[in-house]
Design a protein around this nucleic acid. Sequence first.
DNA 1: TATATATCGGACAATATTGTCTTAAATTGA
DNA 2: TCAATTTAAGACAATATTGTCCGATATATA
Lengths: 148, 148
Amino acid sequence: MILSKTCDYGLRAVLYVATCLDREYISIGEISEKLNISFHFLTKILQKLTDKNLLISFRGPKGGVKLTRPAGTITLLEIIQAIEGPDFFDKCLLGLEKCKDDNQCPLHQHWSPLRLQLKNLFQQNTLETMAEMLKTNQFRITDLTVRF
Amino acid sequence: MILSKTCDYGLRAVLYVATCLDREYISIGEISEKLNISFHFLTKILQKLTDKNLLISFRGPKGGVKLTRPAGTITLLEIIQAIEGPDFFDKCLLGLEKCKDDNQCPLHQHWSPLRLQLKNLFQQNTLETMAEMLKTNQFRITDLTVRF
DNA sequence: TATATATCGGACAATATTGTCTTAAATTGA
DNA sequence: TCAATTTAAGACAATATTGTCCGATATATA
């Protein structure tokens, strides 16, 4: 699989938040219930995202989390990198440190552009485009799994 | 990461075998030592490959494993599918069952060809091409890690 | 035949990932 | 101020993955 379950949960959770237009803070309890994700586990994942300034959290009644920026400006890549690490898409397929352009392994040559495309794929899709997709096509967010 | 550690081990082990030209059976002990992989763990992984008829094993002194077919006819894809499952490269990125061509999610549209390319990448490279690479470039097999 | 060497097969252990629970702190509203 | 609600933080448990060990079986060679 390409992404960890943790990352999958994180992505789907913020996507859910993005679909909640015109609402203030969305409680983690609601998210976990709707998406069928362990509440406490999700709490920790989203904490990571608030630490990275992708979400703002608020305690107490009417509390929860909300996006720091408009959904159209938050890419899936940002979420993934916040959870999996910033260099998630920047490694050689073969783990060769010296796999440089002048000394390529046969996979590298082909993997390099692929890796870039994959990264771009996540970078070009924002939470808004994903939310749009959910509306126009008849996908329910509960059916999503962003995993290989 | 894209491949499990188990799969990485399996790939590197058969690659090592492929580089041992003009030798009969290669003992798993030797492979595990050279590649720094737990012997017993590797044994199980290679057993899976002998079950799938990619390797032939032989017990006793001078025993070990060897490729069933010439290295040039064994693709990396075969090894990966034997270990990770035959449908490893055939799943929708979003896990949507009904993610068909007529009702695509925005990621699917781009992921679909990417997935195919990735699969082809592993299908087009045989153990022989990989072994060649190790000879012509100065990569040592001990530096390899076939992971994301 | 006896011994050494190798894979086979299963049980078991260590580690990493995922999931649960409990208490603390912040906030709202009565 | 007090009770209810919600995130924060850490301990702990369950599960999956990875790694270890031991005995059985097969084979070569002396």
